[in-house]
Design a protein around this nucleic acid. Sequence first.
DNA 1: ATGCCGATAAACT
DNA 2: GTTTATCGGCATG
Length: 198
Amino acid sequence: MDTTDPLVTARRLLGAHLIGRGVTVRVTEVEAYAGRRDPGSHAFRGRTPRTEVMFGPPGHLYCYFTYGMHTCCNYVCGPDGEAAAVLMRAGEVISGLATARSRRGRSTDRDLARGPARLTQALGIVLADKGINLHDRRSPVRLEWKDPVSDVAVRSGPRVGVSGPGGDGAAYPWRFWIDGDPTVSPYRPAKPRRRSRP
DNA sequence: ATGCCGATAAACT
DNA sequence: GTTTATCGGCATG
């Protein structure tokens, strides 16, 4: 599988199977990030300790912590040195249902992996898993290229939760999802939040 | 079904 | 010291 282009990789990731610690998810929604040339990317401002793995080889896991309580995960891709990645936003749990339920507490089955932090939690992925090789059979988190989705069944639109120029859907319509799939997360525009009150 | 609200810590400057 | 973003609960239609 050629993973040099984040947009191509993102589309191809739809339908793929992400396996994390006893739970398998079929990916239904993703977002592409083009690294140094993309203002929405964590790697836009260059290499830092956090973004280090994005500058490494494709096929590895980049995860980050957000909202003081959630973790999200990305598939690192190319081109080389550009630190591109694809955020996996949602999926359908296709095996390990009982484990996924126990990790997610009170949740309907549809919502088990419906959203980036939910998907990450359902798979038992934590921040410390950053850097894992997703194509090594011994890894606790793996990705398998399965069930490719035809382009006619794929829709695209603005990225969620990206503020500033990177959130402009006309310039970056880089969120992709499987049309009509119930596990795709509901769209909400990035909301600029006002700074802490006195 | 939609919309507002608040929680919270890592990374960065 | 400043920036950053999702989820779950609750209110409303």
